[in-house]
């Protein structure tokens, strides 16, 4: 690990100011992903700003009937929250489908959204990777790609976003609240947070340098049956090959998003509209522009079959 200086701050304003003083710094909260990447020298910040004690650890109702989740709420606490379990069950289900108990006790809400891909070529510093070293090439495209993206990818990068929680939040129309060094705040819909890889896969979100996520907001509950189905290589503690998150209403209408297929949770309103017609119709829309590699074409039928299974389960 490269050496770094360290400071702890006690407010979001102090955090963004600290970043302004030390360009190239990184915020650290749970640290479960960043520290791992620092050990491998994939991340080499010269300065760390500890944002784990900013008081952003509360889950509160919003004036429009929704909920505001502090950026530093731990994954365990979010999954265990009575209101989340009752009204936003999809999020609790997605959270407990991810990582291990130990990791969920440290990992934060904002950190979960900003975690980086688990593409093995991103992790292997002996291999080319446009995300880790722009311009070096992509070893995954012709390589071991069974875990990689089938939608939204580019000739430069076929990495997937690994979060389960983000898939559930995408279904529920979540937004992130941020503050920047000038004190400006904004709200960004989750669908707009992640950038398509294009020719710049090293740029993963629309956040400006030093812009800090302070909360995730959810609109008021939409009811319905919440199901998160994750398909993986072992029964627990593994990343998704694909995952399907749905909220289905009694009349058969609903919403769907996919995990493990692209650089962000994959959702389309036009696919939601096809849900009453079944898995085949909705999948056709979701995966209309899919492009598989020699190793991950299995994901195409797997998405449709998993969605069919989930819709059958929702009918009860």
């Amino acid at each position: 690990m490269k050496s770094f200086t360290f400071e702890r701050v006690d407010s979001p304003a102090a955090a963004t100011m600290a970043f302004t003083r030390t360009p190239g710094a990184r915020f650290i909260a749970g640290g479960t992903n960043l520290l791992d990447l620092m050990k491998l020298e994939i991340e080499t910040p010269g300065h760390l700003i500890d944002v784990s004690r900013l008081g952003l650890d509360k889950i509160e109702p919003t004036s429009d009937g929704g909920v505001r989740i502090g950026a530093m709420v731990r994954n365990t606490d979010l999954a265990a929250d009575a209101r989340i379990r009752r009204d936003y069950g999809l999020i609790a289900r997605a959270l407990v489908a991810g990582a291990s108990g130990q990791l969920r006790n440290k990992a934060t809400t904002a950190g979960n959204l900003l975690q980086r891909t688990r593409c093995p070529y991103f992790y292997d510093t002996n291999q080319p990777c446009n995300k880790r070293k722009p311009g070096s090439g992509c070893a995954a495209i012709a390589g071991f790609s069974r875990n990689h993206a089938i939608v939204g990818a580019s000739d430069a990068c076929i990495a997937t976003h690994p979060s389960d929680m983000a898939v559930a939040m995408q279904v529920l129309d979540a937004a992130v609240e941020t503050v920047d060094a000038a004190g400006e705040t904004r709200s960004i819909g989750l669908a707009d947070l992640y950038r398509a890889p294009g020719n710049t896969p090293q740029l993963e979100t629309v956040l400006a340098p030093g812009e800090l996520i302070t909360a995730v907001t959810l609109p008021k509950p939409i009811g319905g049956t919440h199901i998160y189905h994750k398909v993986r290589d072992r029964a627990s503690y593994a990343f998704a090959l694909i995952s399907v998150g749905v909220v289905v209403q009694r009349d058969g209408s609903g919403r769907v998003a996919l995990g493990g297929v692209g650089y962000k949770p994959w959702r389309a309103r036009s696919a939601d509209a096809e849900l009453p017609r079944g898995a085949k119709a909705a999948t056709a829309v979701l995966l209309a522009d899919a492009k598989a590699t020699h190793e991950n074409a299995y994901k195409l039928p797997l998405v449709e079959r998993t969605l069919a299974s989930v819709l059958a389960q929702a009918k009860g």
């Binding site: 702890r8 650290i28 640290g31 479960t32 520290l35 760390l48 990791l103 006790n105």
Partner: peptide
């Protein structure tokens, strides 16, 4: 927690 993935100074 996993003590390997946590900085002592935190």
């Amino acid at each position: 927690i996993n003590s390997c993935l946590s900085l002592a100074v935190m």
